[in-house]
Design a protein around this nucleic acid. Structure first.
Lengths: 335, 335
DNA sequence: CCCCGTCCCGTGAACGTTCACGGGAACGTT
DNA sequence: AACGTTCCCGTGAACGTTCACGGGACGGGG
């Protein structure tokens, strides 16, 4: 049952093959498959049968080429398993779906080196990119070649880019004020342990602490994981045993601290108050539930998608002052 | 500064425009952009400048049409925020990336009605689909029109499909044996509350319990969330106060039960042992860490991607008996 | 008998890119 | 001077689909 002439190469089944098999023209096949009018019932059925018989599937490229109605955006994140990025990704997906867009997701596995390769390969697959990058702007620029790019949680210098700013200054101030109101004066912080630059969150903490006449120097670094948070808390308490409250770089670390506190026999919040950052759903699963300087991750993803959409269609992009997510204190049982 | 003739339509900038602007031919532009040889340095630079000037970006459709070397798969899940699917998705992404594939992710927001629409729209965008669906097979078939489809955690009847089976029988047996060895005889279960069919996990539990002469009737339904787990535990303990250990439908519910146990003042595992199902990373964050009948989610995603790849290339697909993930007991502090 | 409308269906063109091939210029070799 | 090589660059074709248009068959009204 050799079909056609030539070697039985693994050639793709095209619309022509279906047309020939059904004894009609391409256009009729197209009509049958796309449910258009101007086709007789019996013909339509015959074409559909032929298509199924041959295992025909239209080429998305050919189709996309002629009717340019599908937009696809790329979403680049360092680690989908990190709950923060999970939430951002889920929100971005939700917003994209509402617009009928497709989202190609790339997980760079926490390796900044992968980012550029990803961007390279992404370039020919998507119309715009939303993502969390850690590499330099000029590199981003080079590998992105005039494609709209929206950065998450990071400032941008080049005019080409947009970025969603995370402003936690006020939220952290609230957190410290909250702790002070509860009678705490010895407040520590678990910062991230990347010593490249002092983290913004640390700066916010320092400012807030000073505002209450509190020594902002009780800080320890912690690896960005629950285990890291536990180890960090041990180190912090060893260096500053007087501490009665701790603010952490994010919720993951806070959860680790919570767990470690219990292991150390310090009850929360009586012996040790804990406040995290990000406001992940994860925090609500803890007992006591985690207090957190909460980010509206849904708004974060939403803004990013909205902006990349404007950049795409040429509509006036949102001004930087609107591209901002404000963190607010969400007090719970742990403080 | 009106360019070209005609209305200044929002026409796409094509390779021709760049070629004209740089005073060369299409092919030379293509060479410059793709970093090929056979082009002079100065010419290349001139083309690159022109491209940047015009904001040119190659059409992925035209490119994909001619060099058919990119494969894209669709990943359909009910809820990315559900940690189980997060882990599966992350694994699938990882495996796809290793093969250089792109992954379009669709979150159906727990609405089965969305599944078909998604499949419909997906059809012209991806080469194959991996996903967790809850709609009927014939519907899946209709909307998928000869596209490879791999089902996760669900049996299939039609030969067209593949599915990754989850076998927890042995793991649940281990769990019950473990509890019995610890002296428990009154073991309850928090099942899911969807009353359509009795869950497989419940059947496994029943069989395992009977194997040890234990009454398998101490069961309560729980909504699939932490809060649901908490409420379920309360209901279960109210109906069967004698219970000293509980097995749950999944880890999410278990986490809720863990939290509720603490609120009720029952210490874990001394007063109440808890064993979940899935083996999510989430469980390790609890204190005590959650025991669980653990699934290798990485293998799950990996198998699915592998299989859809084989279906895609026409290689011999994996036989059903290899498409199986076995759950094993991973004991921890909560039991 | 002619005309017009409706219902189907087919043909050329276009979408934007890369591949295969050919060809001119410059340079060196015989 | 004729010829081969190397280096650049351009032209036709192809990828597989949909859009715009045209046209035949058939039926009904004048």
């Amino acid at each position: 049952m050799v079909s056609s002439s030539g070697p039985d190469s693994a050639r793709r089944v095209t619309i022509h093959d279906v047309a020939r098999s059904a004894g009609v023209s391409r256009q009729t096949v197209s009509r049958a498959l796309n449910g258009k009018d101007e086709i007789e019932r019996s013909t339509k059925q015959r074409v559909l049968d032929a298509a199924r018989e041959l295992g025909y599937r239209p080429s998305r490229f050919a189709r996309g080429l002629v009717r340019q109605d599908t937009t696809t955006i790329g979403l680049v994140i360092p680690d989908l398993r990190n709950p923060f990025f999970t939430e951002v990704a889920a929100s971005a997906l939700e917003c994209a779906r509402a617009r009928g867009w497709h989202v190609v997701v790339y997980d760079t596995a926490d390796r900044p080196a992968e980012e550029l390769g990803t961007l390279q390969v992404i370039g020919s697959q998507v119309d715009g990119v939303v993502g969390y990058f850690s590499c330099a702007e000029d590199e981003l620029d080079r590998y992105t070649r005039g494609m709209p790019l929206v950065l998450i949680g990071r400032e941008h210098r080049m005019a080409r880019f947009s970025s969603i700013r995370i402003d936690g200054q006020e939220g952290v101030r609230e957190a410290v004020a909250h702790l002070v109101a509860k009678g705490h004066t010895m407040i520590g912080m678990l910062d991230h342990d990347n010593r490249a630059e002092p983290s913004l969150r640390r700066e916010w903490f320092t400012a807030a602490a000073l505002g209450h006449g509190i020594d902002p120097g009780r800080v320890a670094g912690a690896e960005q994981s629950a285990d890291g948070g536990g180890a960090g808390l041990r180190a912090l308490l060893a260096a500053h045993p007087e501490i009665t409250a701790v603010f952490t770089f994010n919720d993951i670390v806070a959860v680790g601290a919570l767990r470690e506190a219990r292991r150390l026999g310090r009850s929360v919040p009586a012996d040790l108050a804990v406040i995290g950052f990000d406001g992940l759903q994860l925090g609500a699963l803890m007992e006591p539930p985690l207090s957190s300087v909460a980010l509206d991750t849904h708004r974060l993803g939403s803004l990013a998608v909205e902006q990349v959409g404007r950049l795409l269609t040429g509509a006036d992009p949102l001004p930087p002052e609107d591209l901002e997510v404000r963190a607010v204190l969400r007090p719970a049982g742990s403080s």
